[in-house]
């Protein structure tokens, strides 16, 4: 992995990193990926996937009636910025 790839990765991960930090990550990831690459030696068909999910399409009746707005105050109390009953967000487009 080269430094440009690290910087691209940070961008995708929505994290700001400095050039210096990129060098640190490069070193870390080389060690980690070297270890993770050991799985490439295993010959395994993707179709061998073993079904482990014990719960599938877990459904329940939508029968709990809440009063409109009954959670609004407690949720908005945690928001960094609000406007009336809304979360305040910077213009997206």
């Amino acid at each position: 992995m080269n430094k440009e790839e690290i910087l691209k990765l940070a961008e995708l991960a929505r994290i700001n990193i400095t050039e210096e930090e990129a060098d640190g990550y490069k070193k870390d990831f080389e060690g980690i990926l070297n270890y993770l690459n050991s799985i490439q030696s295993v010959d395994i068909e993707f179709s061998q996937f073993y079904e482990t999910n014990l719960t599938k399409n877990s459904m329940r009746d939508d029968d709990k009636i809440y009063d409109s707005g009954s959670f609004t105050d407690v949720l908005l109390a945690e928001a960094p910025e609000i406007d009336g009953d809304y979360f305040k967000v910077k213009k997206v487009l």
Binding site: A13, R14, N16, I17, L75, A79, F87, V89, K90, K91
Partner: peptide
């Protein structure tokens, strides 16, 4: 994400808010 709860670090646009908050 710095919008609904938890830490919020401001930025010029929404992408910067995400980045500054997480960083």
């Amino acid at each position: 994400d710095g919008i609904r709860y938890g830490l919020h670090k401001d930025g010029d646009n929404i992408l910067d808010i995400y980045k500054n908050t997480k960083t």
